[in-house]
Design a protein around this nucleic acid. Sequence first.
DNA 1: TAATGGTAGGGGAGGAAAGTTACAGCATAT
DNA 2: TAATGATATGCTGTAACATTCCTCCCCTAC
Length: 961
Amino acid sequence: MFGTTREGFSVLAHITDFLPYFYLPAPAGFVGEHLQPFQDNMNKKLGEVVSIEIVAKRTIWEYRGEDKTPFLKITVSHPASISRECNYQGFFPAGKLVTYESNVGYILRFMVDTHVVGMNWVTVPAGKYKLRTSQTRRSSCQIELDVRWDEFISHTPEGEWSAMAPLRILSFDIECAGRKGIFPDPQVDPVIQIASLVTKQGEDKPFIRNVFTLKSCSYIAGSDILSFNEEVELLSAWRNFLGTVDPDVIIGYNTTNFDLPYLLKRANARGVQGFNKLGRLLHIGTSVKEVHSSSRASGDRDSKECNINGRLQFDIFQYMQKEYKLRTYSLNAVSAKFLGEQKEDVHHSIISELQNGTPDSRRRLAIYCLKDAYLPQRLMDKLMCFVNYTEMARVTGVPFNFLLSRGQQIKVISQLMRRAKEDGYLIPAMKEQSSDDQYEGATVIPPTTGYYKDPIATLDFSSMYPSIMIAHNICYTTMINRATISRLRLVLDVDYKQTPQGTFFVNPTRRKGVLPIILEHLLSARKRVKADLKNETDPFKRAVLDGRQLALKISANSVYGFPGASFGHLPCTDISSTTTAYGREMIAKTKSVVEDHYRIENGFEHDARVIYGDTDSVMVDFGPSDVATCMRLGAEAAHLVTTHFVDPVKLEFEKVYWPYLLVNKKRYAGLYWTKPDKYDKLDAKGLESVRRDNCCLASETMDKVLNKMLVERDPEGALAYVKKIVNNLLQDRIDLSQLVITKTLAKMDYVSKQPHVESARRMKKRDAGSAPGIGDRVAYVIVRGTKNARVYDRAEDPSYVLEHNIPIDTEYYLNNQLATPLMRIFEPVLGARAQGLLFGNHANSMKIATPTEGGIVTYVVKKQRCLGCKTELNSRNMQNGAVCTNCASKTPDLYLKHTAATSKVQVAFSRLWTQCQHCQGSLHQDVLCSNRDCPIFYRRTKVQREVEDSVALLSRFDGVW
DNA sequence: TAATGGTAGGGGAGGAAAGTTACAGCATAT
DNA sequence: TAATGATATGCTGTAACATTCCTCCCCTAC
């Protein structure tokens, strides 16, 4: 175990004598005399079986009475020796044998048995350990010791033991000098700079800030600069720096997939001695491994993995991808969103130029590099990533690095094993069985769509699935089949009950399920933490507590998904389908109770109607037109409904929507009220304004329209707004950045052609290194094409479109991105007249010639036209380079007009240029930024082209006078 | 090999299939 | 009156086009 003391000294504790083991059910007739020969027999095949003993345990699978049965606990000397096959005197028939707890990782096994959870404090009592001497040391840690696995104390992370450790965190970024148009290749392209920041956990300023540069570099305030003439020296010096700093945590942005592998491959290519000794173990070097992960929630993803023993790796890029749903995950976009600042983005082809320039140009690069090292640290602080993950590791009990590298299941398994061990249950190692059969999920009440001017109350079941599982004691350990029922002579409704799904579970009086116990523990712990949070004033402790309650909530919710996971460790469709069946019954019951009770004939002023509901919520139109009454009725109804259900199931009144626009199932918007005097926010669900797969123009327009309709209650104003946007679009006054559509490249082999897939394919052809890979998000815009050309043929990389000045298909954006979604929300409010009002005629559209076959104008004869009357200029009518004979007299006027136009765009351009200079922090240097996530960049490039065109036009007046 | 939370549902786009229309080509009637 | 040619009519196959329905795909709600 690696760790740190309270004072910040690094520790390596060698844990001794902990051996892996697994279980086999003892077959009938197997007795004590068989143990030794059986062990000898197994040793022949496996070797290294240390001991076998008979223990009384019970399986977690199904209720089979309270009797424990004999199991063989087989202890082996090495994790690899755990087997699922054994054969001895016909006792263990091949194929049918089920082993228990044989598929549990050794690390988790150890942590469960010693009550160690990820990121917790451990005390090694005096006298129980032996310090290692300089001869026996195996690591670079300051303290190194040996301790038996059962002689240290693991502290539950509560009270004084919930403090964060004073970990040293290194954040770094590298720059390499690539060749033009090609993504850097570690076999060829050198590493030229490495920027590093070192911060102590909990402090807001780094105590080391430096940059290693190849060749000299001018002074940077507040940072150390270490320059080297040889790349090999640079790499070697940085490795030594890392060893001296001895960080506990290494962070960065995409360091796992880019920076670390690049450094290692480059050092290898240049033959830098000992570079791969990045970890704390002296005899183990770091190597790169390709891994593939796939999950239903986050899709497929290819990535790399580096082992740096004794140091945690925490790649903020991976964290963002896992925890946030964003349009783009570039460091630019993420910093802009969460830190509120754009950063300069130097295209990789320009880096070499800066490197080959002067100390000052290398200084620019160094500043850029330092910023890229600083931003991950700031993101981590701002978003509390490290604190939240620490709490998640503590709550679920898994090692910290599992949280990024593994899925949801391992967290539930960890909790399940801990609880199971306490109660003497064993978990079977199920044979992998990928079943395709889906079970039935939740009900979505068919919506009565429309625009509601009266307040709509929303009632929710809090933590629905967890509370169902607790209320009805649904668990592996409580499932029971008919045979067992008759064998044990159990009585319906006394000992067990039949669920709506037709399955049977024993009552808690007979046996309380393990899953319900885990869930109760999680829910009550969350309640306690929330109570503590109310009294806590220290902002840092508050953050820890908040992270903890969040972790508890997420953990409780993922318990339900675990038995339903078809590719799982312990799939059990009965548990999942029973839980959802109760849920369906409850939502139906809620609807009928509310609608039966709140009726005019029962003395109420209106008949209440349930207009919509999804899984655990119902939306009720009680009738009254004021929020306060609606809230009172809602709270009352929630209370009434709750009495119909088993504890701890609880229906809560949560909020009122007023007004409320119900578009379809899972698609609605409304003003969200929790108190009668003021609304909290505009809440939109499922609509284009909250989706990532349409362009910003579409979502922002919809957001504005919703605001005008619901907040300002001004549908006419909304109409006018849309008309303005449409006009801007057709006149090409919308930034390209607003039109970028992003979608995830989810897999390799697509059945049908898709716009984002085809665009990614074209990008790959141009530069394979920088093209989006599997799991990345692809950005594209739709350009004009030949008639009937498919959308996938017209999807193009925005940078490419910008560089080559390819015309945008405004009609596509108008019809597919704006009109269709907007009509869906206008129609319920305005009725059928909306259509004509908005999209009837767009005569103002600028007609741009449609390119012919293949998207390229093949034979273009450029003919000059008169700047006055646009007539074609030829040898007969040409007065001068600018105008025809007819317009000759207007030449001075035309000249003035074009001069004015030119200077106007020049002013616009210089303003944008200055803005970019401000952003890069220097007003007397060229702007190199090509940040594709920054709207200014697009605007600047567009205006730049306008300036060029305008100047070219003006030059036709040259020699007129 | 190891590892991978669930189902319900909207909506855009592609693509096959079935339907429509226009038209050439031919046979037949006038 | 029969044979012949011109024209109109009707049928049919085919290509082009528009529509419908289904599937794939992405993303979201819960």
